[in-house]
Amino acid sequence: MASKVFIVTGASRGLGLAVAEKLLQTSHKVFLVARTEKDLQAVKTKHPSSVDFLTADLSDVKVTPSIISSTLKSFGRIDGIVVNHGVLTPITKIFESSVEEWKHAYDINFFSALALIKEAIPELRKSQGRVVFISSGAAFGAYAGWGSYGTSKAALTHLCTHLAVEEPSITTVAISPGKMDTEMQREIRDNGKAGMAPEVHASFVEEHTSGRLVNPKDSGNVIAKLVIGATSDLNGKHFRWNTAELANFQGQ
């Protein structure tokens, strides 16, 4: 299989890093985007000819053209994008939150993704590429205190369906990666109690204690395979990472 070029956001740790590592294991080139330079540099040091990166705060949409131009300068093309970055905060009930906090969450979770995809469309048309949006079960249900996160993930998931309708040459999928053993889950356990229903918060703590959280490498493996080769019948749809419908993309 010929080497392809992928952009992965939120790539310095957790799910984004797991996706990037899987892509690199299968001999592809990856352009990483995150806020922590030393973590991105560590990946590039291990894979100097296959990795480049840009340290950026994606909530500032003015950085978006630089991501696309830098990827093209480094590798000459773009075959796919994994939109993985996002924030859970504020974990606050609607009445106790501020509109400005919600706007900031949307800038990160939604508008930055919109800006990145809009800028990348010409290159993705050329490559008949793929986009994988990282969604969440919170896009389809509701937890007290999770309003900004859940609604912004719902908007992101619906963006997937619109992109599929408008750009049929680009295969677009939204994936819920499960409750993973990542920094976001630690944030829920450490900081979520005040804004969440007590029994719901306790369930998140218990899932961690009992070892039932998903390893990011497991869902990251599926996401990497999808951005490489998602088929047109998946276009515009949302799936849980471990659904039977994605059986062809599961396993090592």
Rank of each mutant, 00 (worst) to 15 (best):
Gly76Gln: 05
Ser74Thr: 07
Leu40Phe: 07
Asp57Glu: 15
Ser74Pro: 10
Gln41Pro: 00
Asp52His: 01
Gly76Leu: 06
His47Thr: 07
Ser59Arg: 10
Ala42Tyr: 11
Ala34Phe: 02
Glu37Asn: 02
Gly86Ser: 03
Pro48Tyr: 07
Lys62Cys: 09
Phe75His: 03
Leu58Phe: 07
Lys46Asn: 08
His47Asp: 09
Lys73Leu: 12
His47Arg: 11
Thr71Trp: 03
Gln41Ala: 15
Thr64Ile: 11
Ser70Thr: 10
Ser74Asn: 07
Arg35His: 13
Ala34Asn: 00
Lys62Ala: 15
Gly86Lys: 00
Leu40Gln: 06
Ile68Met: 13
Val61Asp: 05
Val63Tyr: 09
Val43Thr: 05
Ser74Arg: 03
Val83Thr: 10
Asp79Leu: 00
Ala42Pro: 10
Ile78Met: 05
Thr45Ser: 14
Lys62Val: 12
Arg35Ala: 13
Leu58His: 02
Lys46Gln: 14
Arg77Tyr: 07
Lys73Ser: 15
Ser69Thr: 15
Lys38His: 13
Thr71Pro: 01
Ala42Glu: 14
Ile68Asp: 11
Thr45Phe: 06
Ser74Gln: 06
Arg77Val: 00
Leu58Pro: 05
Ser74Cys: 08
Ile67Trp: 01
Leu58Val: 14
Ser59Gly: 15
Val83Cys: 15
Glu37Ser: 05
Lys44Ala: 06
Ala42Leu: 11
Val63Ser: 08
Asp52Leu: 01
His47Gly: 08
Gly80Ala: 09
Asp52Pro: 03
Arg35Val: 11
Thr64His: 04
Leu72Gln: 11
Asp60His: 11
Ser69Trp: 10
Ala34Gly: 07
His85Ile: 07
Ile78Gly: 00
Arg35Thr: 13
Thr36Pro: 13
Gln41His: 09
Thr55Pro: 01
Val63Ile: 15
Ile81Arg: 01
Asp52Met: 01
Lys62Glu: 13
Arg77Phe: 05
Ile68His: 10
Gln41Arg: 13
Ala42Asn: 13
Ile68Glu: 12
Ile78Ala: 04
Leu58Ala: 06
Gly76Ser: 09
Lys73Asn: 13
Ser59Ile: 12
Ser69Cys: 12
Phe53Cys: 00
Lys73Thr: 10
Thr36Asp: 15
His85Phe: 08
Thr55Arg: 07
Pro48Ala: 11
Phe75Ile: 02
Asp39Tyr: 01
His85Ala: 14
Ile67Glu: 03
Asp52Tyr: 00
Ile78His: 01
Val51Ile: 12
Asp57Lys: 12
Thr55Gly: 06
Val82Thr: 12
Asp39Gly: 03
Leu58Cys: 07
Ile78Arg: 01
Val61Arg: 04
Phe53His: 02
Glu37Ile: 03
Gln41Met: 11
Ser49Glu: 15
Leu72Ala: 09
Ser74Ala: 15
Leu72Thr: 07
Glu37Tyr: 00
Arg77Thr: 06
Leu54Gly: 04
Val83Gly: 05
Lys38Asp: 14
Lys73Pro: 05
